[in-house]
Simulated scan of single mutants.
Amino acid sequence: MERARREWGLSHFTLGFVISDGGCEGALDGTVPIVESEWPQAVEGVRAAGGDVIVSLGGGAGTELARACTSVDELADAYGRVVEAFGLRRIDLDIEGPTLEDDTANERRTQALARLQHDYTAAGRELAVQYTLPTHPYGLPDSALRLLRDARDRGLDIDLVNIMTMDYGPDFDMGETAIRAAKGLHEQLAEIWPGKSDEQLWAMEGNTPMVGVNDAVNEVFSTADATELAAFADETGIRILSYWSLGRDRPCPELGALAEECSGTAQGAGDFARILNRTSPPAPGTLRATPPAPERPSEWHADRPQAPAALPPALAVRRRLDRHRRPTASDTGG
């Protein structure tokens, strides 16, 4: 993070994933107790330099806490311990795969987050909640829409919906498809929150591609795709751009290979960061924080697992686009 901040100008990061340690307690990748890790101190270092880090719970591996904790109270307490350990004002829930299909866990999570959000508000603090969800090329799947409607109906204030524009399966133009999915999400959010304006709905969106070669190796998100997506985000007001992941934003020895430590596409080190981080973020105050700026900031996504939960946590970069908010292969992306 420190090198990316100094050399690439990044200031806002997402750390993932916090999942169950085997019981109702969050741990980094399910193995490292939060209080025993060096991450809280590293997060404070980023904040001291004017940036921020948010923590993502869930992801594609391991057990998300809503499936491990058996009661709403236990779950709210478990989430609260993560919030306190990192001093968060924003929390990200990366819900995908079997977890997204678990309606019981989804209801428990919604109730726990609503309770936690209410308690923080009553104490004069803020806790923004955002979801990171898989997407089809045309928008969210039905299971994700059920999750969002249930959250709305139970009084959970959702600040942002971030879609993972990756891993669809078929051959697609990845820049075009990220934009198409964003447009589809916009229409879906308008149906769920009909009282919001177009501007408010775009400001509820995040977009997170996997840079370079995706897990579906026929799909490649290039620097040209990143430029196209960044321009669309500027035009519409999409609030957060992220990418998976920080450690992959560098060239591989050869093109076309899927790797954890490089992108497999033609690029220089940090090119995706520079393209997606063209504007500076707003003032800090979220899980993925916000540096000061009148425009929308940029964020990269390090919180999407391409490896087993036993590996060290990953980082994603993001670009925040506003300053007014506190802060497997199939045809479904993510």
Rank of each mutant, 00 (worst) to 15 (best):
A316P: 09
Q267T: 05
S298C: 08
D215L: 02
A68M: 04
A85F: 08
V211S: 02
E260S: 14
Q267W: 03
E36H: 09
A48T: 10
P253S: 11
D167S: 14
A151R: 02
A257C: 03
R250Y: 06
Q130G: 08
T110L: 08
E25N: 13
E228R: 13
A316E: 08
G62Y: 10
D303P: 01
L148E: 11
D52L: 12
D234H: 11
P308V: 13
P194H: 00
A78R: 13
Q200Y: 15
L88H: 04
Y131W: 07
A42Q: 08
I179W: 02
P40T: 12
E261A: 03
T165V: 13
R326C: 04
C69I: 09
S20T: 05
D173I: 04
A128N: 09
A123S: 00
G195P: 00
L201V: 06
L88F: 09
R146S: 04
L10M: 08
T328V: 12
V43E: 07
F272V: 10
I91E: 07
A269S: 13
D119T: 06
G62T: 15
L127R: 00
P294W: 09
T223G: 00
E2P: 07
R67D: 12
M166G: 05
E44W: 10
S197V: 00
A289P: 01
Q130Y: 06
K183R: 14
E2F: 03
T121I: 05
M204Y: 00
E2T: 05
A226T: 00
G139A: 14
T223R: 00
R274L: 07
L246D: 09
S56F: 09
A61V: 05
L160G: 03
D52C: 09
L28F: 14
D198Y: 09
A105F: 04
H301L: 11
I91L: 15
E36R: 13
D94S: 05
Y168E: 02
R250H: 05
P98N: 00
N162L: 04
R6S: 03
D167R: 12
A203S: 08
Q267P: 01
S298N: 14
